[in-house]
Structure formats: C-alpha cells, structure tokens
Design a protein around this nucleic acid. Sequence first.
DNA 1: ATGTCACAGTCCCTGTGA
Length: 253
Amino acid sequence: MKVATWNVNSLTARWPRVEAWLVENNPDVVLIQETKQTDAKFPFVPLEQLGYQSAHYGQGQWNGVAIFSKVGLDDVTRGFGDEDPEARIIGATCGGVRVYSCYVPNGRALDDPHYAYKLQWLAKLADLVSHRDTSQPFAAGGDFNVAPTDLDCYDPSAFLGATHVSEPERAALRALEGAGLVDLTRTLHPDEPCYSWWDYRNGAFHRGWGLRIDLLFVDPILLARSTKSYVDREARKGEKPSDHAPVIGEFEL
DNA sequence: ATGTCACAGTCCCTGTGA
C-alpha cells in the first residue's frame, strides 16, 4: 500500500498537477491539505474516474482537508468533534488502516494567538492518537507546520524566534511519539534532510532553502510493514507547483 | 529575509494568509 500526504495549496488551482501526479504515481491512499474550496468545487467525479473514492472536509477560502482512496473509504470523521470552525482534520478507514489527513495551524508568530491555537490543536491530536484502537493499523499524515529537529531546517539560525522550530511545537510532536507513533520518513532516513516545503519567494527551492514539515506518523504495526518513505521533489518543479512536495510511505500489508 | 502564490472583495488592484 502506497500512502501519500500532500499540501496542494488550493485543490482548485492545483487540480491539473494533482491529477497528473495521481496517474503517474498511482498511490492507494492520498492525504490532502489546503483544498481551499467547498464541496461544490471538490473534484469528486474526476477522482472517481481515476478510481478513487474521496471524502472532503472543506470550508472555502482557507484550510480544507481530504482523503482519496483506491482501497475503500469508510467511517469518515471530520474535525475533532468540538466547536473548532476550521477544517483541519479528516479521518477514514482505508484498506483496514485508520488514516488522518492533518493540516496543523501555522502559528504565525510566537506571540500571536494563532500560536496558542496551534499548540492546543496539536494537544487535541495527541489525545486522539492516545485514544485510538491499537488493534488497527494507524497513520496520521499531513502538513504539521513544525520542523521536528534542526536537521529538518535548512538554516536554524534564520528561524530564531520564529514558529515551526520552537521548543513547545517540537515537544507537541514528541507527544505524538509518546503516544506510540513514529515519524516514518525520519526513522527510515536518519541523516538526510528530506525537505518537503520551500517558500515560493527568493528562489528558495533552487537554493535548497527547505523545511521538512510534511510528516507521516505511523503506529508500530505499519512501521514493521514499511518498505520505504521518500519525498517527491519532482512535484515541486515545473508549472504552477504547490510550495509543498508529496511525502510517500510504502507498506507491505 | 521576503524577490511568490492564491483567495475574496473593494473587482483588474488591494489586503490577508501562508
């Protein structure tokens, strides 16, 4: 089973790239972030023609998460079941695996209320992970907007005092590991940066100024069955790319 | 560190968010 996570930065604007990528790579399950559209614009029919069932939790101008699956899509949940109006997490069971597509709040700045919201949101995710059914394979992938360690940041000195690298954010990710998950890409590649995001500005992609913030957290069952994990940097090249590249995990189930 | 992109509305530019 091939599982991908990809922040597409508007599924409306990115659909031609997304469609071509699905045809070329044939993933079984895709966790999408930042659809930035309502259900009225979501490509349910084109996805079906490509062989994918799909579920969307959209709100319109901002946020929006989705799951595409070729191996079944059942028991869909949207949000954490609280009053949060922002569409940032959707869950489903695909091919016997419980999967979540996560779009963690950006945080904006350490003294911004959105940063506190980010930490609260990650705490809710850790609570969800700790209450999961551990008899079922589990994966939570998405744009976490946190670089777990300095290896995941092209220049830690450029991020002093900024979000994405602060200790509370990194501790919030470690709480997911404390609840039994592992960061698959980093586990299989302990020394390579494996960046997944490059700013559109300043020629960041060509200068190698990246961050690894798109992560695939998996439980011990999936880790034991994992064969590879990688970033598809090709998807960051060419016409109208997202600023994020897809991150893939492959499993023998 | 800000040379870009995407969105909506004020609608062919501007403010916001990333």
